[in-house]
Amino acid sequence: MEFKNKVALVTGGGTGIGKATSIALAKRGATVIVNYSRSEFDAEETVRLIKQEGGRAIAIQADVTQDKAVRNMIQAAVRQFGTVDLLVNNASITKHIPMDDLDSATEDVWDELFDVNVKGMFYCARAVAPFMKKNQQGAIVNLGSIAGQTGLGSSLPYAVSKAAVHGLTKSLARALAPEIRVNCIVPGAVVTRWWAGQEEQMKKLAPNLLLQRISTPDDIAHMICAALQQEAITGQMITVDSGQTL
């Protein structure tokens, strides 16, 4: 129970990697705050699954693109649980646009992806930092993507936004040291709803990976927990991609 008596916030915690991470943290003893923006049913279902196994969890709605909403969420969490010890910046979105279709990468697409994928992670980190500093310890994990390393992804703005997350991780690691560790888990292809409608593409990809398997949300969740626990690492990009980028 390595996270016993710890309070963990997982943004976008009701689905995919966020759901797996919320459950993994609860199994390791953490009290989990499952954040959601629109997926209330999924967030409440994740809370139910955690409580069913004897864990502690609540769901809190907040749009991470809104700084005030993020601050209110953290204040509500602190009122109920006293602090926030761990933050998993998981909430992310994408738009599926062919990489060479530059005209479809409109201002609205850029703004929406950067608001959620980059600024949202910054707002959450900034809001929890004072409480972690007060405790003289804390850990943050941001969710990046190999798209941010390779430049290839579901869209050009998405890939660039994830490269920005990798940069944000390094800058936050410097800004929040020594009390708070900040790392980034960088998944390759993962079996989530993002692949809906592209199952055939996924099946073709798997045999070409060194480990010949697509990562699962549980694979990523276990690595997130490991990064949160490891006290000698900060500012690092940790790739989990079955050898996809080798």
Rank of each mutant, 00 (worst) to 15 (best):
K4T: 14
N5F: 12
N5R: 07
K6W: 00
V7E: 01
V7R: 00
A8R: 00
G16D: 08
G18V: 08
T21L: 08
S22C: 08
A24W: 00
L25M: 13
R28Y: 07
R28G: 10
T31I: 14
T31V: 14
I33Y: 03
V34T: 04
N35E: 05
Y36Q: 02
Y36K: 02
S37P: 00
S37E: 04
E40C: 11
D42F: 09
E44C: 05
E44I: 08
R48K: 15
R48V: 02
I50E: 00
G55T: 11
G55L: 04
I58Y: 07
A59D: 04
Q61Y: 09
A62H: 09
V64Q: 14
T65C: 11
D67F: 06
I74P: 00
I74M: 04
Q75L: 13
Q75C: 06
A76V: 06
V78I: 12
V78P: 02
G82W: 13
G82Y: 10
V84G: 00
V84P: 03
V88I: 15
V88T: 04
A91Q: 00
A91E: 01
A91C: 06
S92K: 03
I93R: 02
K95N: 14
H96V: 11
M99A: 13
D100T: 12
D101V: 10
L102K: 09
A105E: 11
T106F: 05
D108L: 12
N117G: 07
N117R: 07
N117I: 04
K119C: 07
K119G: 11
K119N: 13
G120T: 06
M121L: 14
Y123F: 15
Y123Q: 14
R126T: 05
K133M: 14
K133T: 13
K134N: 15
N135F: 03
Q136N: 13
Q136D: 12
Q136T: 13
Q137V: 05
A139I: 01
A139V: 02
V141K: 01
S145A: 13
G148R: 01
G148V: 03
Q149W: 07
Q149M: 14
T150R: 08
L152H: 11
L156K: 05
A159Q: 04
V160D: 04
K162T: 10
K162D: 11
H166C: 05
H166P: 01
G167E: 01
L168V: 11
L168P: 02
T169L: 05
S171E: 13
L172G: 02
A173R: 03
A175Y: 05
L176I: 07
I180V: 07
R181T: 03
V182Y: 02
V182L: 05
I185N: 00
V186P: 00
G188H: 03
A189S: 11
V191Y: 09
V191Q: 15
V191L: 10
T192L: 05
W194C: 03
G197V: 02
G197E: 03
G197K: 08
E200C: 06
E200H: 12
K203H: 06
A206K: 06
P207Q: 05
L211P: 01
L211T: 14
T216R: 04
A221P: 01
A221Y: 00
M223D: 04
M223V: 15
C225S: 11
A226C: 10
A227L: 14
Q230L: 03
E231R: 11
G235Y: 11
M237Q: 15
M237H: 06
T239A: 13
V240Y: 02
S242A: 15
T245C: 12
